[in-house]
Design a binder for these strands. Structure first.
Lengths: 196, 196
DNA sequence: CTACAATCTTTACAATGTTAAGATGACAGG
DNA sequence: CCTGTCATCTTAACATTGTAAAGATTGTAG
């Protein structure tokens, strides 16, 4: 991430790599206080540049937040991929993936609201084949592989997929909600198995 | 809602019932544009008072939003109660309640983010007996009545409750998310039965 | 009727997002 | 080496927002 040549993408001009530093500083702020106290000017200050410097790299604050979202989504995907690495054929793959999904947001509680309510993601449930949100696409293909060898009729797949995803997404939404208190382990609250 | 006497609660002084009108105007704004473009000054303008008039009724914007949240929660509870009215003993009560939960937010898509991320609700999963969030308390008692006559061991109750709630809450979170596109009926996406 | 207190307005200020204009400096071509 | 271009960054300015302070208004108790 340090000694790269100048491409069209990263722009280490005067300040050197400001665009990436803004993204990283922004994510740092999200992890601290969430989206409530987030501000463009704080991000700029964190990078020791004027509060309008970000406008050389992002059209507006939404584009900065979107870039931050892509960065976090990338980390999220890495975590998800790692959780199912070398588990091909294992029928518990779905559970591993679901656990990774939940654990990722438990470890970064502010990411949930940030990603799903501010980063401008788009999830199209009408056209699965179009560019879907990567974590959901992975979830879909993973669930499908297990589903295929379950003998259930193909027409039932979507229901099983969305039911599973809703459960995983729902417990995550609850446990990362600022207003929800729970000091125990989520594994005592939810039975991820017994869906198929 | 018009010809009430002055109690300690509503205060029709100069303007007449401003407190309630602020709450209603605020909820109207939420339904239009969600929490993004919400502002105290717009609510005040909507009521044709100065932008600081709300401070005679609320300590700050968070208290106004909290009052709006209580109002919406009250509507939510009315809807939930109506959905299970006269269904005592019916094992499908849980499904009716879950459907009402989902449908309420489908009809008011902005309420989900508003209620769960801005209205300051508190849900304590450690102490169920303490004042919990009313919709969750209702969900809990409703599920418990069905669960009791299912023969399952008492120790498993919490898991079943939270699993169900997560599923309902999760699909609601997804379908009311601004970034999620789905033009069909949620009943084609989820199988609320087959949990017990 | 008078004084009090609740209600509302005016004024002011700090934080924020955004735009416009100008300064800075890397770099390519002469 | 010099110069002009252009991406980058700064300064200045403005609109929107939340909030505090001070004063004006008015219903109501005594």
């Amino acid at each position: 991430m340090k000694g790269r040549m100048h491409t069209l993408k990263d722009k280490p001009y005067h300040h050197g790599n400001l665009r990436n530093q803004l993204i990283e500083a922004g994510i740092r702020l999200i992890n601290l206080d969430g989206m409530n106290s987030f501000s463009l000017r704080k991000v700029a200050a964190e990078c020791a540049v004027s509060h309008t410097a970000p406008y050389s790299h992002f059209k507006n604050i939404d584009e900065l937040v979107a870039a931050m979202g892509e960065h976090v989504t990338s980390q999220f995907m890495d975590t998800l991929h790692a959780s199912v690495q070398g588990q091909e054929g294992n029928p518990d793959t779905i559970i591993l993936l679901g656990q990774a999904y939940i654990d990722f947001f438990i470890e970064h509680p502010q990411y949930f609201q940030f990603l799903f309510y501010h980063s401008g993601i788009v999830i199209d449930l009408d056209n699965y084949d179009s560019d879907s949100y990567p974590p959901f696409a992975l979830f879909r293909t993973t669930v499908y592989e297990v589903f295929r060898s379950s003998g259930l009729p193909e027409s039932e797949f979507t229901k099983h997929l969305v039911t599973l995803w809703s459960m995983v997404h729902g417990i995550t939404a609850l446990l990362t909600n600022n207003g929800v208190r729970y000091s125990g382990n989520w594994r005592d609250l939810l039975e991820l198995k017994s869906i198929f």
